[in-house]
């Protein structure tokens, strides 16, 4: 376990084994997803199921860790799979070059211990949440805009995203990221919090963002833990 020596003793050897026996899906492989995949692979989550139907664009280079100039025009799913293989060959990785939709969502999350929402649309997040609820799998959901980030951890019995975005009858707005963009450090910061939540769920340890939304505004240097229920 020389690879994981520096995980100890914050993690125990038993916990390291739990992580290596865990199966986690990461949906969305852009700014958030690239960071989450990097950190989950390094900490030793044993099986990763990755999904994104996108190809890299030049505008991704400002913030997406998987994006290199050479990979513009190439598949994010392929890049994520290659990155995992480059940093941790002990991780089993399957990468789907598809967008999440109502046809593939249930099959994608099936058998996972946890799912991480790194999507870039509010509609798709609800679709993923539904699939996780049907499969009774916890979901860590993060979102970003500009220098703003939010993270929540949703267990199947929790009310979930409607507490943040309103219920299905309310108009599903576009997120403000369309207007404010995303800086390089915002996705990495939120990805780290999502990864931290994931590890805590898998190890059943630590304080979770359940029924609470962490709102971080790095420009205003404000950190709010909002009780949602």
């Amino acid at each position: 376990m020389e690879r994981y020596r520096r995980n100890f003793n914050t993690l125990s050897p038993v916990e390291q084994v739990i992580l290596s026996n865990s199966r986690v899906a990461v949906i969305g492989l852009g700014g958030l997803g690239g960071g989450v995949v990097e950190m989950l692979a390094r900490i030793g989550v044993g099986t990763l199921v990755l999904m994104d139907g996108d190809l890299f664009e030049t505008s991704n280079l400002n913030r997406q860790i998987l994006a290199t100039e050479a990979l513009v025009g190439h598949s994010k799913a392929g890049a994520a799979r290659d990155r995992v293989r480059a940093i941790n060959t002990t991780v089993q990785v399957t990468a789907f070059h598809n967008f999440l939709d109502s046809e593939n969502a249930d099959a994608t999350v099936r058998g996972c211990d946890l799912v991480i929402d790194c999507l870039d649309s509010i509609e798709a997040r609800f679709l993923l949440e539904d699939a996780c609820r049907r499969a009774e799998i916890p979901l860590v959901s993060g979102a970003i805009a500009g220098t703003l980030g939010q993270v929540i951890t949703i267990f199947p019995q929790d009310p979930g995203l409607k507490l943040i975005y309103g219920d299905r009858s309310s108009p599903r707005a576009d997120g403000v990221e369309k207007e404010v963009g995303n800086l390089s450090y915002t996705p990495m910061f939120v990805a780290a919090i999502e990864t931290s939540e994931a590890v805590k769920v898998l190890l059943n340890r630590g304080e979770l963002l359940r029924n609470r939304l962490l709102i971080v505004d790095l420009m205003a240097l404000s950190f709010d833990l909002v009780e949602l229920t």
Binding site: G28, G30, G31, L32, G33, D117, C118, L119, D120, S121, I122, R125, G142, A143, I144, A145, L148, G149, Q150, Y165, A173, D174, G175, V176, E177, N182, P187, I215, D224, V226
Partner: peptide, 10 residues
């Protein structure tokens, strides 16, 4: 009072 918009980027 905090007033928060929809945030959905990834």
């Amino acid at each position: 009072v905090g007033i928060f918009p929809p945030v959905g980027g990834g």
